[in-house]
Design a protein around this nucleic acid. Sequence first.
DNA 1: ATTATATGCATAATACTCTTATGTATTATT
DNA 2: AATAATACATAAGAGTATTATGCATATAAT
Lengths: 112, 112
Amino acid sequence: MYSSELIKGTLKTIVLKLLSDNQKMYGYEITQKVKDLTGDKIQLTEGALYPALHSLEAEGILSTEVVNIGKRVRKYYTLTKKGKTTSEEKVSEFSDFINTMKFLLDIKPQVG
Amino acid sequence: MYSSELIKGTLKTIVLKLLSDNQKMYGYEITQKVKDLTGDKIQLTEGALYPALHSLEAEGILSTEVVNIGKRVRKYYTLTKKGKTTSEEKVSEFSDFINTMKFLLDIKPQVG
DNA sequence: ATTATATGCATAATACTCTTATGTATTATT
DNA sequence: AATAATACATAAGAGTATTATGCATATAAT
């Protein structure tokens, strides 16, 4: 696991990217996907994720659809049109940020 | 400028890296150096920087030396032995984090 | 059968860090 | 003479994450 402060500010970017790849996901699924894809290095907590999802929905970036699975409820999130744009912008901004940080921290690409 | 949440959590890493390269710097100098090196893309604010420096000093990561420049005061910060280790760890952790995020966000190295 | 784990949502108290604003003071520039 | 730059510092407020808690169903393990 990374120190928590490192991951700060990247939560929304991660969520938006996953949703642009997967069209439709629910909260718990997002936490598991991130855990899997990062080999447990990034584990989103519910206390951070759910408020973030709610805020993205309030901003009109995500829309929701509630589905009943047996007696349990699942809330699927989908990117709105605005959300698709936002997702691309966020990823692109982060990509730029990575380059700036690599330069600033003098991080070389590992050879081999 | 990047959106502020993007830069969150990177402040200490940036400061420690600069100090490992420059041996001895003062607060204002750090803000200018970062501004210069990033082409104004990252601008540290005093309200964030000074408390961070104080906290790093309290942790024994930085030591200070106050120098009088005419009638003005400058507070130079230097990495302690512990600080040198911390600096390397932080940069290395961030480097690892970048790789994880590049994979997660499917960011390709730009060719050309 | 019963207990523990996993799935699935949500929020509240707390802590932490950054933004923004303010304060003080010296030095350089217009 | 006024403004900008240099140089420190802190305080109020905002925002976001951590940690803890709560509720409930479903599945796996003992």
